[in-house]
C-alpha cells in the first residue's frame, strides 16, 4: 500500500428524502504514472489507484475507471440521490491490491 494514504470526503450529514447532494472526495496518493524515469534512467513502475466507487446503502452512485492521467491526490466531485437515511461507502482500489475505504452516514429529516 502506498505510504500514509488518507481520504477526505464531504457528504451532507442530513438531507430530505430524494434530495440530490454534491459529494466531494480527495485521497492522498502519488499516482505514479509509469511514464517517469528515476535519476539512473530506469522507468519508475506504474502504481496508481485504478478504480473509485461510491455506493449508498449498497446501491451504486458512481464507478470510475481511473488511468495514470489522473493527478496526484485524486479528487472527484459528483452528485448523489439520497432516497432514505443510510450510509455512503467510498472505495479506492490501488494497483498494489490495497483497498481504501471511507464512509459517511446521512440522516433524513
Amino acid at each position: 500500500m502506498a505510504e500514509n494514504v488518507k481520504a477526505r470526503v464531504r457528504a451532507p450529514r442530513s438531507a430530505s428524502a430524494g434530495e440530490v447532494a454534491t459529494i466531494k472526495t480527495l485521497i492522498s496518493h502519488p499516482m505514479e504514472s509509469g511514464q517517469r524515469k528515476d535519476s539512473q534512467g530506469n522507468t519508475i513502475p506504474r502504481s496508481i489507484i485504478h478504480r473509485f466507487t461510491c455506493d449508498f446503502n449498497g446501491e451504486n452512485v458512481i464507478d470510475v475507471k481511473m488511468e495514470p492521467a489522473i493527478s496526484t491526490n485524486p479528487y472527484f466531485e459528483f452528485e448523489a440521490k439520497i432516497p432514505e437515511a443510510g450510509e455512503f461507502k467510498f472505495t479506492w482500489y490501488d494497483d498494489d491490491g490495497s483497498v481504501y475505504e471511507e464512509s459517511a452516514t446521512v440522516e433524513v429529516s
Partner: peptide, 15 residues
C-alpha cells in the same frame, strides 16, 4: 477546504 488538496496533509498532521 474540500477543494484545497493541502487540507489532506493538514488532516495527516492532526493525526
Amino acid at each position: 477546504d474540500f477543494d484545497n488538496p493541502a487540507m489532506i496533509f493538514v488532516d495527516q498532521a492532526r493525526d
